[in-house]
Measured scan of single mutants.
Amino acid sequence: MDVFMKGLSKAKEGVVAAAEKTKQGVAEAAGKTKEGVLYVGSKTKEGVVHGVATVAEKTKEQVTNVGGAVVTGVTAVAQKTVEGAGSIAAATGFVKKDQLGKNEEGAPQEGILEDMPVDPDNEAYEMPSEEGYQDYEPEA
């Protein structure tokens, strides 16, 4: 019985440690998101679009440190934060509304985080759909 109880105690310690790591990862992701939003706020009209992409990228980098179902929630929060940063930029006159959601080359930025393969159960990952990809044929 002692062996059984000791095993359960060790398992509990492992769960607590994993929860603490997840909590730490979420806190880091939130900190990076805040950094990115402050970065966007300090940019001029020309830099705002690039700044919004930076927020998304920093958040995406930190999301990889967070495991399990938390990833889905962090990704949703990050996307809403990026959308909010863009709205703030438009409201303050840093950028025109028609410039939001495009990178410096004018290509749409939507789907940055949505296409990231995420499995809350950590069982399997699927690649994003290939609808947006084109076949590449090298020139002879």
Rank of each mutant, 00 (worst) to 15 (best):
Glu57Cys: 03
Glu35Ile: 14
Gln99Cys: 10
Ala76Thr: 13
Gln62Ser: 09
Ala18Gly: 02
Lys43Ser: 03
Gln99Asp: 10
Leu113Ile: 14
Thr54Phe: 15
Ala29Lys: 05
Ala107Ser: 09
Glu104Asn: 07
Gly106Asp: 04
Lys58Ala: 14
Glu83Asp: 10
Ala11Thr: 06
Ala30Phe: 14
Asn65Ala: 06
Glu139Asp: 10
Thr59His: 02
Gly14Asn: 06
Gly51Asp: 01
His50Gly: 05
Glu110Met: 07
Val74Glu: 01
Thr54His: 09
Thr81Arg: 02
Ile88Thr: 03
Pro117Phe: 09
Ala69His: 09
Val82Met: 10
Glu114Cys: 15
Gln134Leu: 10
Gly68Val: 10
Met5Phe: 03
Gln99Gly: 14
Tyr136Met: 07
Gly86Ile: 14
Leu38Gly: 02
Asp121Phe: 12
Gly14His: 15
Lys60Trp: 09
Glu114Pro: 12
Thr75Pro: 01
Lys60Val: 08
Met1Tyr: 01
Ala89Asn: 03
Asp2His: 07
Glu126Asn: 13
Lys60Asp: 00
Ser129Met: 12
Gly7Asn: 10
Ala124His: 12
Lys43Met: 15
Asn65Lys: 05
Gly41Ala: 11
Ala78Met: 14
Glu123Pro: 08
Val118Cys: 12
Tyr136His: 08
Val55Met: 13
Gly73Arg: 06
Val15Thr: 01
Tyr133His: 11
Gly84Gln: 12
Val15Leu: 08
Val77Ser: 02
Tyr136Ala: 06
Gly41Trp: 07
Val15Trp: 07
Phe4Ala: 00
Gly36Pro: 01
Thr33Ile: 03
Ile88Trp: 14
Gly25Arg: 14
Lys12Gln: 04
Glu126Ser: 04
Glu57Asn: 08
His50Tyr: 11
Tyr125Trp: 07
Phe94Pro: 03
Leu38Tyr: 12
Val15Arg: 00
Glu46Ser: 09
Gln62Leu: 06
Ser129Gly: 06
Asn122Cys: 06
Glu20Val: 03
Lys58Leu: 14
Gly93Thr: 05
Ser129Pro: 10
Glu83Trp: 10
Asn122Glu: 12
Tyr136Gly: 06
Glu105His: 01
Pro138Lys: 04
Val55Tyr: 13
Val71Asp: 01
Lys6Pro: 00
Glu61Tyr: 02
Pro108Val: 07
Phe4Val: 02
Tyr39Lys: 06
Pro138His: 05
Lys58Tyr: 13
Thr59Ala: 12
Glu114Ala: 03
Ala78Phe: 14
Val26Lys: 00
Glu13Ser: 08
Val66Leu: 12
Met127Thr: 04
Ile88Arg: 03
Ala91Gly: 06
Ala85Lys: 02
Leu8His: 00
Ala124Asp: 15
Val66Asp: 01
Val16Ala: 06
Ala17Arg: 07
Leu100Glu: 08
Ala85Met: 14
Glu57Leu: 06
Thr81Ala: 14
Glu61Pro: 02
Gly47Ile: 07
Ala53Tyr: 13
Gln134Ser: 07
Val71Glu: 02
Val37Arg: 00
Asn103Cys: 09
Thr22Trp: 15
Ala11Val: 15
Val71Leu: 10
Asp115Val: 10
Leu8Met: 05
Ala19Met: 07
Pro138Ser: 08
Thr33Leu: 06
Glu137Phe: 09
Val26Leu: 08
Ala90Asp: 06
Thr92Cys: 13
Ala17Trp: 13
Thr33Trp: 13
Val49Glu: 03
Lys32Ser: 02
Ser87Glu: 13
Glu61Leu: 07
Gly31Leu: 11
Lys80Pro: 02
Val71Phe: 09
His50Met: 14
Ala29Val: 09
Asn65Ile: 14
Glu137Cys: 06
Glu83Leu: 04
Lys43Leu: 13
Asp98Tyr: 05
Lys12Asn: 01
Gly132Pro: 04
Lys97Ser: 11
Val52Pro: 01
Glu130Gly: 13
Ala27Asp: 01
Thr44Asp: 00
Gly41Arg: 11
Thr44Gln: 01
Gly93Gln: 04
Glu46Cys: 05
Val3Arg: 15
Asp98Asn: 14
Thr59Tyr: 14
Val52Met: 14
Val37Glu: 00
Phe4Lys: 00
Gln62Ala: 07
Ala124Cys: 13
Tyr125Ile: 13
Asp2Gly: 00
Ala76Val: 10
Glu46Gly: 15
Phe94Asp: 03
Tyr39Gln: 05
Thr64Pro: 03
Ala56Lys: 10
Glu110Phe: 13
Gly86Arg: 05
Glu123Leu: 10
Lys45Gln: 05
Glu83Ala: 11
Gly67Thr: 10
Met5Asn: 02
Lys96Arg: 09
Asp115Arg: 04
Gly93Trp: 13
Pro108Asp: 10
Lys21Tyr: 09
Glu57Met: 06
Thr59Met: 04
Ala27Cys: 10
Leu8Phe: 01
Gly41Val: 10
Ala85Gln: 02
Val66Phe: 14
Ser9Asp: 03
Gly36Leu: 04
Thr72Asn: 13
Pro120Leu: 07
Lys97Glu: 07
Ala107Met: 09
Asn65Tyr: 09
Ala140Lys: 11
Asp115Tyr: 09
Lys102Gly: 06
